[in-house]
Amino acid sequence: MAESVPKQITYCGVCSLPPEYCEFGGTVKKCEDWLKEHHPSLHGKLYSQEAIEQNLSTLSLEAQKRAEKDSQKKAAKAAASEARAQEQRDNSKVLIKRIERNKRKYVTAVQGLEAFGLDIKKVAKDFGKKFATGSSVTKIPGGGEEITVQGDLSDDIYDYVVETYKDIPEDNVECIEDKKKKAAG
């Protein structure tokens, strides 16, 4: 067995590419700041005046312009998509519903977790494990899916969601009580 060590590569914490390629992503500025903070030596090498000049010199003037335009477009796109994601995040709510099933029996339904980039199947499993109850993903009539947990756990789930998923602001989590819809039948 040869004792060659695998080459260690640092990846950018912002766009996940090797730092050399950050300039081709849409978040150059952020990437640069990140690199400066975490790997100052690399930052010096990649963002020095010489390096930038050398990069530019290899392209024709026209191609440079085109590349610049392209990268601007990309940056704008990235910023826009980020803003949209942020907005969606702010607007979406997690609903925790207590539904009466049979007088003193309840189930708890949790909606809207997927808007925060969570895999609801996995979360359902976690709920089941944490609270030692049945927990499943069910389809709701209006389209989409929700997590149904057996038992009245609305307060526990509220605490758990706020505690474990730091991405979700507490204001966006809401508990509501649903009176039985059984009357429909």
């Binding site: 390629y21 081709f24 992503g25 990069n55 290899t58 392209l59 191609a63 590349a67 990268s71």
Partner: peptide, 10 residues
């Protein structure tokens, strides 16, 4: 590849 092609590849 040359520098000009990188952005297309990426």
């Amino acid at each position: 590849i040359d520098r000009g092609a990188i952005r297309f590849v990426l």
